[in-house]
Design a protein around this nucleic acid. Structure first.
Length: 833
DNA sequence: GCTGTGCATGGTT
DNA sequence: GAACCATGCACAG
């Protein structure tokens, strides 16, 4: 297959008329479309191309069902028939009646046509272990794609002719195959042996057909083209997301011609990703034919590559390169953890990675977007009669890309080198996910392409958005698959978001939830219009709501002059306070422009309704309501009597009091370090903001450091003292799983200290064994344990709630994950009610 | 006790 | 109900 002649003639070799007006035919391997004259195009569009131009060619076969003649082996008619497991072919019409809904997937890579050993393989393809090594497997070779080293005789890149195109084609073929593979419920015995057998066997058969019909293809035969023909059937079966070389400018990109279907076609193209390995290895692992699996003809949406053309170009670094996105995966905590094992989606692994028969797997070379080469061990574990594919040794790479759980790694292939390239998207910069699609490259601003050319890595919002939009537009496709596509975005939302429960919140929510645990807690609010019932459990009051808490920006509830309950919210831009309805729930970022309650004050330029005095009163009231004021005052009082609270503690408290008296808002009180309450004298709060202020050395004797040391010493002394005094009591109560178990109601102090009582505790003991808990406030413990404490019940209620949530989250190891923290907080809030 | 490895378990689709 | 897969966990070094 040659490139289009400069003089532009019809691509049909039987025609070759000069093109006055070219029309698009099938897609060529290069990604371009065969340019046809009007006549040929009409024939092509009408499915009569072969009848018109290939009638005298060999390779015509009859449909096993209806007898219709179909030109087999011809690239143009490739999509018009399916290969039957029992031999023969069936036209698509009959195939559809037989629930064979896919075009013919069964084109082998050209090289396989020359491999007589395949016959042996096909004799017993179901026995996986006999296929170990699979060096002869026609679909197993992607030597250029994976620069793996051969492994003790396995995976020998025998088929060196198979280029990267083929390897991709293999994937696509596999994809299509898998559609056929989904025929597990096909009420016919034609595929009774399972689609893989059907596939492989027929592939070989097809190979023979090709040879016998003179349709022999060279090793570089246009598998791409064939595949595009697969996809050409009426529908949007096109290489929507395949990169193509733009003829006009030669730039690497996803063909704009296909972009409209990009997202939909991602599903088309990648959604039929390999179920089992084309080699059939996996099939044999548990002795099951692939067709007996549930319909797994689609790559799970969360693995579909949602890569923008800009990302593609960035990955390649070569404007002339053609990039094919393979799949992507959001990193789980395990993936991004220190273990260095990246779990590969099985179908992706089997579709796009070289086949492995031994758990030890293969080393494969992957290039990152910076051009660095990484060698990972691609291997699998037996798992529930299946396999679990992993890439081992990814930690350096992940660290190099500064990835963490929630970020997305993408796997693409660069042609013509066939390199496997690993890109990424940072979840933290994912755009708003109205449509659920992921976002943009980020944190790669300084990245350079392989060519050394700086690549713009500005988030391509438009591109992404465009793609997203188009992606959603996939619902317009008409066939049954397209019907699926119509709900694809929804599915994507649900699946990609919910599949990974620990990373359930993504994109917009991920952005919103980049909060500390306590920030998140501050956003937890009672459900609107809900009046809590106050219940007393073990002497502690709890607010009980019928609905789960909601998330919203903190506001101040108050009564307006008319006696109606309202909220006062502060604009984040102008810091003016606006009155909103009591039922409003604000996003974490709220500005005047979002003030729908009072259009007159929906702009930052409009005056604030509250006078300074009113605002001051409001804020003071809020502080009082929160009990912060009294606590801080008490802390100051205690300063006089508590020798341990000195130095910066007092300074911090005084500063906070000053903050209060200067009418800082309630949010501002905690804005500095939202996870720390007003009055907090921990090192975080008394230090300058992060990144500012002097650096501290171990020998530093500044106030901060000395305070830390002093407090730690005090803490240790108190612990020792407390243990000696209450040790036996604590131990006895700690051994009790429930405060009720001993029939004794725990006192506040006891409960707080012991940490018992079903998690609703305010445990002052540091969870960080042997470490300084910077959030530790010994004085609070003492304060709460004081029989004369004026720690009022309302404050206690708030603190108890927050701390119980906090404890709950901490217990779930969610402290490192704000998202989890919030989620856990929400759930725990419900649980603890 | 730490780390790496391999498998098992259980939640989710 | 089966398959996938994230993660737990036992075990060995």
């Amino acid at each position: 297959m040659t490139s289009t002649s400069p003089t532009k003639i019809c691509f049909n070799s039987s025609c070759k008329e000069p093109l006055s007006q070219s029309r698009r035919g099938w897609r060529r391997r290069t990604g371009e479309f065969a340019e046809l004259c009007q006549r040929c195009n009409c024939a092509y569009e009408e499915g009569k191309f072969c009848e018109t131009f290939h009638l005298s060619d060999s390779g015509w076969r009859s449909c096993e069902s209806c007898g219709k003649k179909i030109h087999c082996g011809c690239i143009v008619s490739f999509h018009l028939f399916v290969l039957l497991d029992a031999g023969g072919i069936e036209c698509m019409l009959c195939a559809r009646k037989s629930f064979v809904l896919t075009p013919n997937p069964a084109w082998p890579p050209p090289s396989s046509l020359f491999l007589p050993v395949q016959s042996e393989r096909n004799k017993d393809i179901s026995i996986k272990n006999q296929l170990a090594g699979s060096s002869t497997l026609p679909w197993s070779q992607a030597p250029n794609l994976f620069s793996y080293t051969t492994q003790s005789g396995t995976h020998q890149p025998v088929i060196s002719e198979v280029d990267a195109q083929t390897s991709i084609a293999r994937s696509h073929i596999t994809n299509e195959l898998l559609t056929a593979a989904s025929l597990d419920k096909r009420p016919t015995d034609k595929l009774s042996n399972g689609s893989l057998k059907f596939f492989a066997g027929d592939m070989y058969e097809k190979g023979k057909i090709g040879a016998s019909t003179g349709e022999q293809h060279c090793s570089n035969i246009n598998v791409f083209q064939k595949l595009s023909l697969i996809n050409s059937e009426k529908s949007a079966f096109k290489f929507g997301s395949s990169a193509s070389k733009n003829e006009s400018n030669g730039q690497t990109k996803i063909s704009q011609n296909h972009l409209p279907q990009t997202k939909a076609l991602v599903k088309k193209e990648f959604g039929h990703c390999g179920v089992d390995h084309p080699s059939g290895e996996t099939q044999g692992r548990d002795g099951r034919a692939r067709a007996d699996a549930r319909s797994k003809n689609q790559l799970l949406s969360r693995y579909l590559p949602r890569i923008t053309d800009q990302e593609l170009q960035q990955i390649s670094g070569d404007p002339n390169a053609v990039i094919t996105p393979l799949f992507e995966k959001m990193l789980s905590a395990s993936d991004a953890g220190r273990i260095g094992r990246l779990v590969l989606p099985k179908r992706c692994a089997e579709a796009y990675f070289p086949p492995i028969s031994q758990p030890e797997g293969l080393p494969i070379k992957v290039q990152d977007v910076k051009g660095n080469d990484w060698v990972f061990q691609y291997r699998f574990w037996p798992n529930n009669n299946s396999r679990m594919y992993v890439l081992e040794g990814v930690t350096p790479c992940i660290q190099s890309m500064q990835l963490q759980a929630g970020d997305i790694v993408t796997f693409s292939q660069i042609e013509p080198e066939g390199k496997l390239v690993m890109g990424f998207r940072k979840a933290s910069t994912a755009p708003s996910s109205d449509d659920g699609t992921s976002g943009v490259f980020a944190n790669q601003d300084s990245k350079k392409s392989k060519t050394g050319e700086a690549v713009s890595t500005l988030p391509d919002q438009s591109s992404s958005k465009q793609a997203n939009t188009k992606y959603q537009a996939s619902g317009g496709l008409k066939d049954d698959k397209c019907d699926k596509s119509s709900s694809f975005s929804k599915k994507k939302l649900s699946s990609s978001g919910s599949k990974n429960k620990r990373l359930r919140v993504e994109t917009e929510n991920m952005v919103e939830l980049k909060l500390t645990q306590d920030e998140a807690q501050l956003l937890l609010r009672p459900p609107p219009n809900s009046v809590p019932a106050v219940v007393v459990v073990e002497g502690f009051m709890f607010e009980e709501y019928k609905e789960p808490p909601i998330i919203g920006r903190p506001t101040i509830f108050a009564m307006d002059k008319a006696g109606e309950k309202v909220q006062w919210a502060e604009c984040e831009d102008c810091f003016k306070w606006r009155k909103i309805s009591a039922s409003s729930v604000l996003p974490s970022r709220w500005t005047c422009s979002k003030n729908s309650c009072d259009p007159r004050r929906s702009s930052c330029s409009s005056a604030q309704e509250l006078t300074t005095e009113e605002l001051e009163d409001l804020l003071q009231k809020q502080l009082r309501d929160n009990g912060e004021c009294s606590k801080k005052m008490k802390q100051v009082k205690e300063q006089d009597t508590n020798p341990d609270l000195e130095g910066l503690d007092a300074l911090a408290n005084l500063a906070l009091i000053q903050e209060d008296t200067s009418a800082l808002t309630s949010s501002q009180v905690t804005t500095r370090h939202p996870r720390h309450r007003a009055g907090c004298t921990c090192i975080v709060c008394i230090q300058p903001p992060s990144g500012k202020g002097p650096k501290h050395k171990p020998t530093c004797s500044c106030n901060v450091c000395s305070t830390v040391k002093r407090r730690f010493q005090t803490l240790m002394e108190r612990r020792v003292k407390s243990k000696s005094e209450k040790g036996s009591e604590i131990v006895s109560r700690s051994s009790s799983t429930s405060p009720k178990s001993n029939g004794k109601k725990l006192g506040k102090d006891e409960d707080l200290v012991s940490g018992g009582g079903g998690g609703v505790v305010r445990c002052s003991l540091s969870p960080f064994k042997g470490q300084i808990d910077l959030n530790m406030q010994p004085e609070r413990d003492e304060e709460s344990s004081s029989p004369n404490s004026d720690y009022d019940s309302k404050t206690k209620l708030v603190d108890m709630k927050l701390n119980s949530i906090s404890n709950h989250v901490t217990n779930r190891d969610a402290i490192d994950s704000p998202v989890l923290a919030l989620k856990a907080s929400a759930s725990s809030a419900v649980i603890e009610r």
